[in-house]
């Protein structure tokens, strides 16, 4: 770059570079997509989601197939075909949390909002990228787990066909539940803006409090337990639920979706109002 000795001022049209039409949602979406896939944590999380989700299902089916086929089994083989998804949940939560909190942790959020000052649009693009990825990864993982696990169950004659009641629904439900969990975690991240804090809150809510709630007494306690996000949302992702008290698949998922939506609206409101 050469430097001219004269510092004569020329007039520069301040808008000469500005396009007539505002770069649309597609541009924000592309930016978020690049951002999402250019950090290692994304690839790691997605790989772990698959390995845990499909791998644990295959493992549990391999080790329990004989028992399930025997007369003493008191569980439905259908409960085992998506067993690994319980572990895959963790990675979905991590991915969703990081999508938001890593921006606050690094100061990136200022670059993001300087590039796209419309915050609602940033949030929408993030949500699309996150849920899209998790839906595909979750569904693929559920199918892989089914095919691997069912191979062991079939050998003992207790396998389920894809056409059997609830199996296909559970495969797609696995994708939906992962996407929902990611969004739920992202919404918490938006409110807390701190990785460790947000992760603790969501993991505690889904895994610890979700199970403890079943110890609550009375009809009230039962409803609280059923409506805890992890309990409500996961019904859709299993062909047969281990827990007989859980809500019906789509009822549960609707409740979970509503909870996520409320949290997201609150998060969005805070995001709009707060200084970056």
């Amino acid at each position: 770059m050469t430097v001219t000795a004269t510092s004569s001022t020329v007039t520069l049209d301040p808008r000469r570079n500005v396009p007539g039409t505002r770069p649309g949602f597609g541009s924000t979406l592309r930016a978020e997509w690049i951002k999402f896939w250019t950090v290692r944590s994304t690839t790691w999380s997605v790989v772990m989601l698959f390995v845990l989700g499909a791998g644990m299902t295959a493992l549990i089916c391999a080790t329990n197939a004989e028992w399930l086929a025997s007369g003493e089994a008191d569980e439905d083989p259908g409960s085992f075909l998506t067993f690994g998804m319980t572990f895959a949940q963790i990675t979905a939560i991590v991915l969703g949390t990081l999508a938001v909190t890593s921006e606050y942790g690094t100061g990136m959020i200022r670059a993001t909002l300087a590039a796209t000052p419309r915050r609602g649009r940033v949030l929408a693009a993030k949500a699309v990228v996150l849920t899209g990825t998790l839906f595909v990864a979750g569904t693929v993982t559920a199918f892989a787990g089914y095919f691997a696990g069912n191979w062991f169950l079939d050998r003992e004659g207790v396998g389920l066909a894809l056409s059997d009641d609830g199996v296909l629904r559970a495969m797609l439900g696995g994708g939906l539940y992962m996407a929902g969990l990611g969004l739920f975690a992202a919404a918490v991240g938006l409110l807390v803006r701190h990785t460790a804090a947000a992760l603790s809150v969501v993991l505690a809510l889904v895994f610890v409090l979700g199970n403890m709630a079943f110890l609550l007494p009375g009809a009230w306690g039962e409803w609280i337990a059923k409506l805890m996000p992890g309990n409500a949302g996961s019904s859709v992702a299993v062909p047969v639920n281990f827990n007989p008290e859980a809500l019906a698949p789509w009822t549960g998922f609707a409740a979970f979706a509503a909870e996520t939506a409320v949290l997201l609206v609150v998060g969005w409101f805070a995001f709009q109002r707060r200084d970056a």
Binding site: N17, R22, G107, R110, A111, A114
Partner: peptide
């Protein structure tokens, strides 16, 4: 409509991942 084409900014804190 496209702020980066109108105003270029270097922020004090390193806004990078």
């Amino acid at each position: 409509p496209a702020p980066l084409r109108e105003v270029g900014a270097l922020l004090e804190a390193r806004a990078l991942h």
